[in-house]
Computed example of a mutant assay.
Amino acid sequence: MYTLKQFAKMFQTTEHTIRYYTDINLLPRERDKGNRRIFNEESINWMQGIVCLKGCGASIEDIKEYCELCRLPESKETLSARYQIILRQREQAYQRVEEAKATAAYMDEKVKHYEKILAGVIPDDTNPENWTEDTRRRNIDALQNRGRFL
């Protein structure tokens, strides 16, 4: 059995987060004689699932729906519904990967730009305080061409 503090530390999160998850029935827990939350191995399993879904960017609503489906009697319908949630999360994860790639490519261009400035090849036009209408337009175009506006 783990105390709230131990459990939060185990998952590198806050006690407040763990309390919230138990309050909205995402995370099972028991109570000790002092009515304090305590957690067992099953709680660890559920928390690992929550952390995984959260890491994929799943909303609390999606995680809650997934957990509720897991608690229902096993059936083709519940399995299919959980599968659909996982498919959605996978798609969102791939979208974030593409956004990250676009952002990294944009930053690669910024690094090259700074290197030209530092080498004295072009004047410094990176300080927003000195931007002109043309500079702003170029920056917006570059960002939009990367599929993302920062």
Rank of each mutant, 00 (worst) to 15 (best):
F7M: 00
F7I: 00
A8I: 01
F11C: 02
T13E: 09
T14M: 03
T14D: 02
T14E: 07
E15R: 09
R19V: 02
Y20A: 07
Y21Q: 00
T22S: 05
T22D: 08
D23F: 01
D23M: 04
I24C: 03
I24E: 02
N25H: 09
L26K: 00
L27H: 01
L27K: 02
E30R: 10
K33P: 15
R36I: 08
R36C: 10
I38R: 09
F39Y: 15
E41P: 09
I44Q: 02
I44D: 01
W46N: 09
M47R: 02
G49V: 00
I50V: 05
V51F: 13
C52E: 12
C52Y: 08
K54T: 04
G55A: 05
C56E: 04
C56R: 00
S59I: 10
S59R: 05
I60C: 02
D62R: 06
D62I: 05
I63W: 00
K64Y: 06
K64H: 14
K64C: 06
Y66A: 07
C67S: 11
C67L: 13
E68Q: 03
E68T: 10
L69H: 02
P73L: 05
P73T: 13
P73D: 08
E74P: 07
S75R: 04
T78Y: 02
L79N: 13
L79H: 11
A81M: 01
A81P: 01
A81K: 03
Y83N: 15
Y83D: 06
I86A: 07
I86C: 05
R88V: 05
R88W: 06
R88T: 15
R88D: 14
R90I: 12
R90Y: 07
R90T: 15
A93H: 05
A93E: 04
Q95V: 01
R96N: 05
E98L: 15
E98D: 15
E99P: 11
E99M: 13
E99I: 15
A102N: 07
T103Q: 03
T103S: 12
A104I: 08
A104Y: 09
A105R: 11
A105V: 08
M107R: 09
K110A: 12
K110T: 13
K112T: 13
K112F: 12
H113Q: 13
E115H: 14
K116F: 10
K116Y: 09
K116E: 14
K116V: 09
I117H: 03
L118Y: 12
A119N: 13
G120P: 03
V121P: 10
V121A: 14
I122E: 13
T126L: 13
T126E: 15
T126D: 12
N130M: 09
N130I: 09
W131K: 04
W131A: 01
D134V: 11
D134G: 08
T135C: 04
T135Y: 06
R138E: 14
N139L: 14
N139I: 13
L143R: 15
Q144H: 06
N145S: 14
N145F: 01
N145P: 06
R146E: 10
